Amino acid sequence: MNSSNSAASTARAAQDSKAFRGLARVGYAVLGILHILIGAIAISIATGGGGENADQGGALEQIQKSPAGVVLLWVIVLGLLALAVWQIAEAVVERDPDSKKKWGHRIKFLGTAGAYIAIAATALVYALGGQSQSSESSQSFSARLLAAPAGVALLVLVGLIVGAVGVAFIVRGVTQAFTKHLDLPSGTARKGIIAFGVAGYIAKGIAVAVAGILFVVAALTHDPETAGGLDAALRALAGLPFGAVILWVVGAGLALYGLFCFARARYARM
C-alpha cells in the first residue's frame, strides 16, 4: 500500500469513528459560543462600552473568567482540534473528478483546518492561565512582513487574501451555499436555520473583509499598527458614518452566526 492510500484509509477510519464525529460536532458548538461572545462584545462597543477585544481572544478571556471557565477552555481546545483533523481528513479523501475543483476544495479544507488550529492554540494559552492579544499579533506580523524584502507587496497580498475570504463568506451567505453541507429538518426550523446562516455569513464576511482592507492600508501607509485583526476591523466599522448602527448590525449578525453554528453541530453532514 502506498503512502497516499494509507493516508486516505487513515482519514476514512477517523471519519467512521462515532466518538471522533461527536467531538468534531462539539467543535462547531464551541465556535458558536465564541461567535456569540464576539457579537456581544461588538454590540457593547456599538453602545459605548466594550473594553474587551472583539475577537477570539476577547471571547476566550471572558470564558477564562467565568465559573468552570478552564474546563470549557479545554473542551474548546479538544473540539476545535477534532474539527481541524476532520477538515484535514476531508482534504485527504476529496475525490472530485475535476482536478482544479479537487485541489480548490483541498486548499479550502486545509485553510479552514489551519484557522481552527490557530483558535485552538489561543484557547490553550488561556486554558494554561495565559492571555493572548491577537491585535498585537497582527501588528507584529505586519511589522515583520513590512521589514522583509518586498514586504509591502507581501502584506498587500495577505490583505487581498483575507479580503477574498471575507467576500467568500458574503457570497456563501447570499447564495445559501452552506446548505449543501447540512441535512436540515423541514418546516419552520429549516427556514430559521437558513436565515441565521445567511445573516451570520454576511456579517462575518463583512468583518473579515474589513480586516483584509486594514492589512492593505497598513502596507500602503507603512503603518503596521493599522492592522489589528478582527477587533480592529469591528472598531473601524464603528468609526464610519452611522458606525454604531453598522457595528450593532454586524455584532448581531455574528451572534446569529454563533446560533447557526449550534445548528451546524447538529445537522452538519459528517
Score class of each variant (00 low, 15 high):
A203Q: 03
A219H: 09
M1F: 13
A218W: 11
V171W: 01
G151W: 02
A19Y: 01
P224A: 06
A42T: 12
S44T: 13
L234R: 10
G200C: 02
L73G: 02
G200F: 00
I38K: 00
A177C: 04
V216M: 15
I88V: 14
A148L: 09
K65A: 15
L182F: 12
G49N: 07
A147R: 10
I119G: 01
L145Y: 05
V171Q: 02
G229H: 11
G51E: 15
S140E: 15
A244F: 08
L256W: 06
A121F: 10
G173Q: 12
A164P: 07
L237N: 06
A19H: 02
I194V: 15
W248G: 13
D55Q: 09
V85W: 07
Q131N: 14
T10N: 07
Y116E: 00
A121T: 10
G57I: 08
L73V: 01
P241H: 10
Y267L: 02
V75G: 00
A59R: 13
S3P: 05
A14G: 09
G22H: 00
A113S: 11
A236C: 09
P185N: 11
G166Q: 06
G228D: 11
Q133S: 15
L80I: 03
I41M: 03
S66R: 06
F109D: 10
R25Y: 00
Y201T: 09
V77L: 07
A252P: 06
G192I: 08
A13N: 03
D55N: 15
L110R: 00
S186F: 06
V71N: 02
T122V: 11
I213Y: 03
V77K: 02
L23S: 01
Y126R: 04
L124D: 02
A227R: 13
A59F: 14
Q176W: 05
G104W: 11
A40T: 13
A118W: 05
I206L: 05
D98M: 10
P97C: 11
V75E: 01
L254K: 09
R106I: 10
Y126P: 08
R95L: 08
K204S: 13
E61G: 15
G197E: 10
G114C: 04
E94S: 14
A40E: 08
L31S: 08
A218N: 06
N5K: 02
A42D: 09
L34D: 11
P97Y: 08
S6A: 03
L237H: 05
E52S: 12
A68T: 12
L220C: 07
M1I: 14
Q176H: 08
D96S: 11
A40G: 13
A19V: 01
R95M: 09
T175M: 04
G39S: 10
A7N: 07
S99N: 06
K180I: 01
V216D: 05
G163W: 13
V250E: 07
V125C: 05
W103E: 13
Q62L: 15
P241K: 08
R25I: 00
